[in-house]
């Protein structure tokens, strides 16, 4: 009798559990299917294409050619140039965006008059559509009518106007600057939210102990907002690595590849050379690079890396 009871109990215990599992799987299934369709499938398809000879100008077949596309890409000097430009582009953008974003957030977190208005003004670059911002900067850089040259020549900093976007030595820096201007408010907003969650008591205690502003920043503010900074730097890294419209509208990667980055390189492989095998191979390399970054950052953010 006792044995029978325990069997019934066991059944009663297992059945609802199983039922819950089935319900959970059913509830999760649509999300998983959608994720697979919009994320995993394109990634896998992209990976497969990178091993195929897909040139739209040679229709008919897409034979597997192993690592040939990767071999061609990795032996292309323009690819290496684009990769080094991408490194400069990402490092300088992330660095400056973090510095400007955090600095302005700390300033805007102080007791200031018209703080709300300043916050609103600082957000403007981020709210402007990317294409509009790019065309505005293109006009500002103009060698004859651009305000930048006008200011620099009138103040005597330059003797004559410079074609910032048409010069080998200045093109890359000239596309980096608007990208920083456009996106640093995002870091500012994230940081500002994190700053406001730090208990005031910590600062009050520090003040009583005689801590200076810099000591408060070093020992209270920065450690408290560290997870937010990791997240902001991860997001700005991904976004700047994948950025396209600003650089395309301003220089299209020119002059003569002087501002070529991997995204413009991929676009040109796809729609100038029509070689989708090589463009997807480059995209896979880009994905691999980003993946490493995401893993490292992920460990810092979610793995208790503080």
């Amino acid at each position: 009798m006792a044995q029978k009871n325990s069997k019934e109990n066991a059944l009663l215990n297992v059945t609802p559990f199983m039922k819950n599992r089935i319900v959970a799987v059913l509830l999760l299934a649509p999300a998983c299917i959608i994720l697979f369709t919009v994320v995993a499938y394109p990634l896998l398809y992209n990976l497969i294409m990178s091993f195929q000879d897909i040139n739209l100008l040679r229709p008919g077949g897409t034979p597997f050619i192993g690592l040939e596309n990767y071999k061609v890409i990795l032996s292309d000097p323009i690819f290496w140039r684009a990769l080094s430009h991408t490194a400069v582009w990402v490092i300088s953008i992330v660095g400056f965006e973090m510095f400007l974003g955090v600095s302005s957030a700390i300033i805007l977190n102080q007791k200031l008059r018209f703080k709300g208005a300043f916050r609103g003004l600082m957000l403007i670059p981020w709210t402007i559509p990317g294409v509009v911002a790019a065309f505005t900067w293109r006009w500002m850089y103009d060698a004859r009518f651009g305000i930048l040259n006008h200011f620099l020549v009138e103040t005597g900093i330059l003797n004559e106007a410079v074609a910032w976007l048409g010069n080998y030595n200045t093109a890359l820096a000239a596309v980096i600057l608007p990208q920083i201007w456009k996106n640093f408010p995002f870091v500012m907003i994230l940081t500002l939210a994190a700053l406001q969650s730090i208990p005031v008591e910590l600062y009050e205690g520090a003040k009583v102990d005689g801590a200076t502003f810099w000591q408060q920043l070093r020992y209270i503010t920065l450690p408290s907002i560290k997870p937010t900074l990791y997240l902001a730097s991860l997001l700005t890294t991904i976004w700047s690595f994948n950025a396209f419209s600003m650089i395309w509208i301003l220089t299209e990667g020119g002059p003569a590849h002087a501002s070529e980055v991997l995204t413009t390189f991929v676009y040109k492989k796809s729609f100038q050379a029509f070689n989708f095998g090589q463009s997807t191979a480059t995209a896979v390399i880009m994905f691999a690079i980003l993946f490493v970054f995401v893993i490292l950052y992920g460990k810092k953010i979610f793995g208790g890396g503080e």
Partner: peptide, 17 residues
Amino acid sequence: VPKASSTWKSWEEIASG
């Protein structure tokens, strides 16, 4: 040819110049 022309890439810029 002026320096400004080194960045022109559209017919609009040509006409404006």
